[in-house]
Amino acid sequence: MPARAGRKTPTPAQRAWLARGIDQPGGKLPLFDEDGQRVNAQTIRSCIDQGWAEPWFANPLKPDWLVCKLTDAGRMALASNP
């Protein structure tokens, strides 16, 4: 899925979420932040829209939860703007 025109670098919230997938198997991104709160759905969807994350699989127990993984474009966005 190509990234739409607009923001070229992640916001601080997007960067924090994306960075948590760097060392995870398959680039799995968390559903919850470090404080146990759900990651903002707008943050997740905007990262998907930019091509920095992509849905990984559907969660049959919680279909409204977006289980995502970091994309190569997401890794590049993190690397290009430390």
Rank of each mutant, 00 (worst) to 15 (best):
A19C: 09
V39I: 15
I44M: 12
D35T: 14
D35N: 08
I22D: 11
I22V: 13
R38C: 09
I44K: 11
A13P: 00
I44A: 12
L29G: 04
S46C: 12
F32G: 05
N40Q: 10
I44Q: 11
Q37F: 15
C47W: 00
C47Y: 01
C47N: 02
G36I: 10
L18P: 00
R20F: 12
A13F: 02
C47L: 04
D23Q: 15
P10W: 00
D33N: 14
Q42A: 13
G26Y: 06
L29D: 01
Q37V: 09
T11L: 14
P30L: 11
T11F: 02
A19G: 09
C47K: 01
P25H: 05
D33Q: 14
V39T: 06
V39C: 07
A19P: 03
I22K: 09
F32R: 12
Q42R: 12
R45F: 08
E34S: 10
P25M: 04
P25G: 06
E34T: 12
G26S: 06
Q37H: 14
R38T: 12
I44V: 15
Q14L: 03
S46D: 15
A16K: 11
A16S: 10
Q14C: 05
P10R: 02
N40T: 13
D33R: 10
L29N: 03
Q24M: 14
P25Q: 10
L31S: 11
Q14R: 02
N40D: 15
P12W: 01
F32S: 09
G27F: 00
P12T: 02
R20M: 13
E34V: 15
P10Y: 00
A41F: 15
R38L: 14
F32A: 07
A41W: 09
D23E: 14
D35G: 12
A41E: 07
R45L: 13
Q24N: 13
R15E: 02
D23Y: 06
I48V: 08
G26I: 08
I22Y: 06
I48S: 01
T43K: 03
G21T: 04
P10D: 03
I44E: 01
R20D: 08
D35P: 05
Q37Y: 15
T11R: 11
P30R: 08
I22L: 15
P30S: 11
Q14D: 00
G27E: 02
I44S: 10
G21V: 04
P12S: 03
W17G: 03
Q14I: 00
G21N: 03
L18T: 02
W17M: 06
R45G: 09
W17L: 02
A13Y: 00
N40I: 09
Q14G: 02
W17Y: 04
W17T: 01
E34G: 14
A19W: 06
G26E: 11
T11P: 00
V39R: 01
A16Q: 08
R15L: 01
P12Q: 03
G21I: 08
G26Q: 05
Q14H: 10
W17E: 02
E34P: 06
D23I: 03
Q14E: 10
P12M: 04
Q42G: 07
P25N: 12
T43Y: 03
R45T: 13
Q14M: 04
D35F: 13
R45I: 08
P25I: 06
G26M: 03
R15G: 00
A19D: 14
C47F: 04
C47R: 01
I48D: 04
I48W: 03
L31W: 05
T43Q: 08
G36Y: 05
R20C: 10
T11E: 08
R38V: 15
